[in-house]
Write a protein that binds this DNA or RNA. Structure first.
Lengths: 236, 236
DNA sequence: CGTAATGTTGACTTCAGTCAAAGGATGTGG
DNA sequence: CCACATCCTTTGACTGAAGTCAACATTACG
């Protein structure tokens, strides 16, 4: 895969401790930003299911995801969980907080991330306003995504939620109708992202499969077989 | 009221067309920022129920709210509505977008806002990195609030939603137990913010009133009479 | 002061949740 | 390589919280 081709540290000398992080995966960040940041980066690897940090931990670090997938979530005291987003390579984690993290982050698949001291990032932002500018634009996009998710959670039916979810992933990853799309998270994760139960998610998958809107080659892949009908089912 | 005491333009000469905007209400912005921005500000007044902009409009302007309350919302084609936030003086509106607004903004009460050309704001941000820094911190806070709202919409019961809503407002506005709290929005607005129906909101109000968690002096005021029990009811 | 808009309450319905069981996949150790 | 254990997913039967529909009460406003 060409995702492994380039190292985001480039050939720069100041890349202490920052190993094999594909440049393309630094995503929304400019190559220039990546070089700025690589000087303060520390690599971090996580196996699936391990936590990067927990809600309430002191928020000393921020991260960029370079490989794999992370889920961000909030928990209620009785264990109810709401996943607020699935992060993919290029995404920034830990932007939004004060003293402590306000959500937990856990690896969905094996994951590689770059860790930065929050204080070092702040210093870099003063030095390179362009970096801050790009972080603001990232935060704005996340905010727009959060608002779309609020509409989904507050007003859509189970069927509409699942359809919107699948279309959203396909769009983000640029996957066309008829093409198999990886779905690394479990049904439980999907349920907690969509504000549903596992059973309701499973039933909705089955119904859409029987209606030939989608195909399910296996439990961690989907193919959108009728995009128009799926967009219809999404409600907007 | 001392809210009218100061003008956010201060005594500066370059305050073209920017009338009576109370400094204190520019809220999260520094006095310094306000002066930076006042040179490019245009005032805007809105009666209750009027729209500031609609989803899909070209996003040429950004705003700071100086008086009153705005609701931001998204609509589905069939009219279902999700209110994503109520904005109060000091809040920034229009941060998160590309070419077009991705939500609509409508006045809940009579409202005054400062309008800025997006392009002018961008220019000012280059000139004054501190301004951009503060906008990033505002966006981060909004993102955290959006995540809390996702938990509410995805995982809380009607009762928990209303309790969380009331506690959130009381905290934001620094209103103590036993003190009357203004609730300018309609039951319909509350329902569309909490992902419920008007009837369910009304019933939840009635139940909590009968349980003496709250008092309802009139339809646009609430008093939290038992904060501990209300926090209990909020679920977290 | 009368009319329209907003809010409350009640009766009934429905969609998604709960509980339960069985089917499949994955992995470990004998 | 197979037997067993565990975990995840699917399916079915039933329940319940919130939605819908309808009537009435209250408020706001021209």
């Amino acid at each position: 895969m060409d995702r492994q081709a380039a190292n985001c540290c480039g050939a720069r000398a100041d890349c202490s401790g920052c190993e094999a992080r594909p440049l393309a995966l630094c995503g929304a960040l400019d190559p220039a930003d990546v070089m700025v940041m690589s000087s303060i980066a520390q690599p971090r690897k996580l196996a699936a299911g391990r936590q990067l940090f927990q809600e309430g931990d002191p928020a000393d670090d921020v991260f960029t995801l370079t490989e794999g997938m992370l889920k961000l979530y909030k928990l209620m005291p009785d264990g109810r969980r709401q996943i607020t987003g699935f992060m993919v390579p290029g995404d920034f984690i830990g932007l939004a907080y004060g003293q402590n993290y306000v959500y937990s982050a856990e690896a969905v698949t094996a994951t590689a991330a770059c860790r930065f001291k929050r204080s070092a990032l702040l210093a870099k932002m003063v030095e390179y306003p362009e970096l801050e500018h790009r972080l603001l634009s990232l935060a704005s996009n996340e905010l727009a995504a959060a608002q779309a998710q609020m509409l989904l959670l507050g007003r859509k039916s189970a069927r509409e939620r699942l359809a919107s979810f699948l279309l959203g992933i396909a769009e983000r990853r640029g996957i066309a109708e008829g093409e198999a799309m990886p779905l690394p998270m479990s049904r439980g994760d999907i349920a907690d992202f969509l504000g549903l139960t596992i059973e309701t998610v499973s039933r909705a998958f089955t119904i859409m499969r029987k209606e030939r809107l989608i195909a399910l080659p296996d439990k961690h892949s989907v193919t959108i077989t009728d995009g128009d009908a799926l967009r219809d089912a999404a409600g907007d």
